[in-house]
C-alpha cells in the first residue's frame, strides 16, 4: 500500500478543540473505533504508550507529535492528521521532561513491526518522509493556512516523497 493511500479524508481533523492530550486521545480513539480502523483496546494502548514513550518531535518551525500504538490494536493502517484549535502540552520523545505546545498531530496506525520485513520498511520510509517535511516552512505554512479539511488533505499530500 502506498503511503498516500493511508491518508483518509475522513481522518482529517481540523481545529479540534480539546483541553488536553487525554481528551484528544479519547476523541480520536472513539472516532477510529467507530470507523473501524482500530480495536476497542486502542484508547488505553495509545495512552499507556504515550505516557511511557512520548512522541513530540522538537522540530522547527513547529513541534509535531507522532503518537502510535502497538500493531495488535490496529485493524487497518492509517495516518490521522489533526490540527488543534489550541495547542496542548506534549512531552518530547526521548526527553520526557521537556514539554512542547503541540498543535499538529500525525497519529500513525501501523501493522507489523520487528520481524516483519515487508511492513517495517514501509514505516521507516514513511517516517523519514514525514519528519523531513515537518521541517519545511513552506509545508507547515500550508498546514497552518488550510481553511477546510480538503485543503488540509491537499497540503499533506503535497509533501515531497509521500
Amino acid at each position: 500500500m502506498a503511503h498516500r493511500d493511508t491518508i483518509y479524508r475522513e481522518l482529517i481533523q481540523l481545529d479540534w478543540e480539546v483541553a488536553d492530550q487525554t481528551e484528544f486521545f479519547d476523541k480520536m480513539a472513539a472516532k477510529l473505533v467507530e470507523l473501524g480502523y482500530v480495536k476497542e483496546t486502542f484508547a488505553d494502548a495509545i495512552k499507556t504508550r504515550e505516557a511511557n514513550f512520548p512522541t513530540a518531535l522538537p522540530v522547527e518551525p513547529f513541534p509535531v507529535a507522532i503518537p502510535h500504538a502497538d500493531p495488535q490494536h490496529i485493524i487497518k493502517p492509517f495516518i490521522a492528521c489533526t490540527r488543534l484549535k489550541n495547542p496542548v502540552k506534549w512531552c518530547e520523545m526521548a526527553n520526557n521532561d521537556e514539554e512542547h505546545d503541540v498543535k499538529f498531530i500525525f497519529m500513525l496506525g501501523f501493522l507489523g513491526g520487528h520481524g516483519d520485513a515487508d511492513g517495517s520498511n514501509e514505516h521507516v520510509e514513511l517516517l523519514q518522509i514525514l519528519v523531513m517535511n515537518f521541517q519545511k516552512p513552506e509545508v507547515m505554512d500550508r498546514l497552518v493556512n488550510a481553511k477546510t479539511e480538503d485543503e488540509y488533505m491537499e497540503a499533506v499530500l503535497s509533501m515531497e516523497g509521500l
Partner: peptide, 10 residues
Amino acid sequence: CGSGVATSQT
C-alpha cells in the same frame, strides 16, 4: 524504541 514499530527502524 518503545514499540519497535517505527522510530527505531527509521
